[in-house]
Design a protein around this nucleic acid. Structure first.
Lengths: 132, 132
DNA sequence: GCAAAAGTCAAGTACCCACTTTAGTATTGG
DNA sequence: CCAATACTAAAGTGGGTACTTGACTTTTGC
């Protein structure tokens, strides 16, 4: 239903550039015009405009033009979406860790555990750093 | 103190690539060898190795080699760090929104408010989409 | 011991994209 | 009206990097 639902692909690609992250950083402390964003940056104004376009396409920032000045501001929803993407991977992974740990810590053979093979990769040894 | 503290720069750059995110996705559901990671991908094994190297340098994944097989797994800490970066920008921005809203909703002139200009960008009008 | 499997290393190519320059359009203040 | 200001649009250039290929090393199954 949202006007511009950006794929997390675009979001992460947008955040993949240092200059763009600097812009997001600056926008974190308030809305700014394109020239204001450009001022601290060591690149041309045109370049900043291009970055803003990428950020806008990603949904991370929104802009509105009034007169001759375009004002940019962050869109928290997009930030949140990216955050959730990361959180999900992490949760999935940590969930696995928890289950593994549960298995390891189950000194007494627990009946509740399914007879199905854990499908978790067997960790045979504490394993050294690189086997030379 | 951590052995490999990756800059969030490297983390976001790593996540900026689609193939790399696909790898992270797959690793989300369990550790995998390089060949396993390569199987569903439409690229050569060597390319996957390179991606894994980038991910490892970013701190997002760790690997250990046993015999001839290198096993990769996610590092939740790195994920969490990126998550926090986003959360902080968002919090900052939403904090601003809250303060603004507080000002707007202050129907009765609050004495507690400083006489200093709010340094918050003035929002004069509900403003239309683009002024043609 | 040999061959297949699983990576590793080094070049090389091709494409993407960050950035520049140049030229142009609205908008605003005096 | 004139000159700044604040972009906008288009084209071009260079560097980075994703990906390939081919040769080589190590491990493992038979």
């Amino acid at each position: 239903m949202h006007a511009h639902t950006a794929s997390s692909d675009q979001v992460f690609h947008a955040l993949g550039d240092g200059t763009r992250r600097a812009i997001v950083l600056q926008l974190g402390s308030g809305p700014a015009s394109v020239s204001e964003l450009a001022r601290p940056l060591p690149i041309s104004l045109a370049a900043v405009v291009q970055h803003v376009q990428v950020l806008e396409a990603s949904g991370l920032v929104a802009t509105h033009k009034q007169g001759r000045v375009r004002t940019c501001h962050l869109v928290p929803d997009a930030l949140l979406e990216a955050e959730r993407w990361l959180a999900q991977r992490r949760a999935l992974w940590e969930g696995r860790l928890d289950r593994l740990e549960a298995l390891v810590h189950a000194r007494s053979p627990v009946d509740g555990a399914r007879a199905t093979a854990p499908s978790i990769a067997p960790i045979d040894a504490p394993c050294e750093e690189e086997t030379p």
